[in-house]
Design a protein around this nucleic acid. Structure first.
Lengths: 192, 192, 192, 192
DNA sequence: TATGAATGAGCATTCATTCAT
DNA sequence: AATGAATGAATGCTCATTCAT
């Protein structure tokens, strides 16, 4: 029997990510993916149950890749501030370096149909951040607000800025990254 | 000869917005819109050139409506802080009160194909905010950073929180709104 | 607006009947029907909800046509024997004259998926025959057996013979028709 | 080198027969058969040339099995009536006992594409019946009609009744079987 | 022998759009 | 202005079959 050809699977994944980014989630069709990946449309159904399954699996794969890259070298024993900086700059770096994957994830997570898939599996990938925020709150360093709020003011603007950079309307350098991290910090810490 | 029937146009617009929110951008088809609006699909082509044109026009209409509502009663002579609060709380209120329109705008603006349409026309609608930020920077109240950065840390988290509320995972009340506004304020102002 | 084009509907129906007879129920596809009918496949969906709906409607139409032709001029006051002959010879005539429709009905009624559709609506079309059998039983002319049995021995062999004629392996003429009717009669009547 | 694995062939045949009966001829696909038989779809092509060849071979196998069972113990020297009863009741018994095979044969023989295959090979399996009818005609016991006619009035109604039993709309017992055989007999014999 | 991988052709259906009235 | 009819092109997906191991 023929052996599973990982080149084909990867070609499918790459093609999917690129097409979703080029023309949008709504317009992405199996046949376009197949053509770009250089395989028959039928081949896709060997590796994935259906379109939704394919998108979900690619999404999870991307999310895991992000989590790994971001927390590679993350030390739970470092200071809150150090971990905060480490996490946010890794986050930005990942987005810039993995433009396609990140934009793909954005597209997927903005699609109403697919918001359900992956909540639990996903959130567990980011427990180090949640721990960080909880610890900061306990130390009276961070404001005593809902974790959601803290995330909104630290992670979300950073992601948005990275998106602006990908669009060409913003440019991260050391200075602006530091400024952004400081703004996040100011937003969630208690003024002294 | 009959005249342009605004009832029909409105029915089409309402139906479009609702369907996009119900089943997502990707699944929204002309025939579904027509059925929900109670008109023939052919009728849509009397009022709009094609599907893309229709979505663009609805998007612009929504954006204008938002701009008007947000800046209704906005006084350029009020204090920076007052204007800041006024703007952000109006913004949140608009989102909550006009759930359908806002989510529609989100869906559209996340679609790569359609991101180009309306950049200039759109940004001009928010000049009062840009003025506000410029003024704040001149007064040494706001950090001397790129306007984009200031926007990221004030508008974006607020929008995200409003979306969380619409999803049911967050709840704005007077206290949490005040807290959020304060976090925005802390992020962009110079600590004294 | 365009007017409903009955030519198109009829062309679809004719094409369906012919193709089902030519290549069988299992192999009949919408696109083949459309090609033969000279319309777009999409046009079929204007007149029928889906493939099953189309087949069901054509089946019912054929069944009604058969019932009408068979019972045209059927007199409830004629003698049992006269009605028996009238019915059976009309039945055979219909099959011979409407080969396509009859074979289509056979194909459909032998398909397990579709046996459910039309039992009630269909059986009511043949009440005159059931009445005939009941009456014959009351007069001690017909054997006192289940109506099903009487039908099996009168209608079914006749249908089968007509099918043989359509295949070319049998030929009805006045003599053989009379013989067949007599055999049916002998099967179900009480010997005296 | 391994030898032909009859377990696999049988599994394929069983699976085919069952699936055709469960979901109908039209919906029966190689991959479904393979799954049910517990083999790879490719394996089927080791034992059969293609789908049509497979169905034809199974059909013939079933037909031979039926012929064998029906004529097992058939004595050419018994009386006409005895042989007639013997044959018909064996026929019914076979259908009832081998529901799957019989219904499979019905499905196949009703498909126009496959009607050609097996005419000669098939008819030869039933020569004892033809002999019986010829003998009956010579003895002036049976009507002097085309053999086809005699078959129609003896075999066909019996098959149809058996089908009704399988559907649950009729029930053979000793009495009704005897009644049916008598009706067949009355249909084809010369009244005295 | 046996099979997972692979595919071109085809499926039923829906699409955005145009046409004739 | 309004719309039912009509369609070529596309959709996601399954098919029967072949290939490489």
């Amino acid at each position: 029997m023929r052996r599973r050809d990982d080149n084909k699977v990867n070609a499918i994944i790459e093609a999917t990510v690129q097409i979703v980014n080029e023309i949008g989630f709504a317009e992405t069709s199996i046949s376009r993916i197949a053509k770009k990946a250089g395989v028959s449309a039928a081949t896709i159904y060997i590796y994935f149950e259906n379109k939704e399954d394919m998108l979900a699996k690619i999404y999870l794969k991307a999310k895991k890749a992000m989590s790994e890259k971001i927390f590679q070298g993350f030390s739970e024993s470092a200071s809150i501030r150090a971990r905060f900086e480490f996490f946010l700059s890794n986050f930005v770096t990942f987005i810039i370096d993995n433009k396609d994957y990140f934009l793909f994830m954005e597209q997927v997570s903005n699609s109403p149909l697919l918001r359900n898939w992956c909540l639990e599996e996903t959130s567990s990938l980011f427990t180090p951040v949640f721990n960080l925020f909880e610890e900061g709150k306990k130390q009276n360093l961070f404001k005593d607000e809902d974790i959601n709020l803290l995330v909104m003011y630290s992670v979300v603007p950073m992601a948005q800025l990275a998106k602006e950079q990908l669009k060409g309307t913003f440019q991260f350098d050391e200075t602006s990254l530091a400024a952004a991290i400081q703004m996040s910090w100011d937003a969630i810490t208690i003024k002294t």
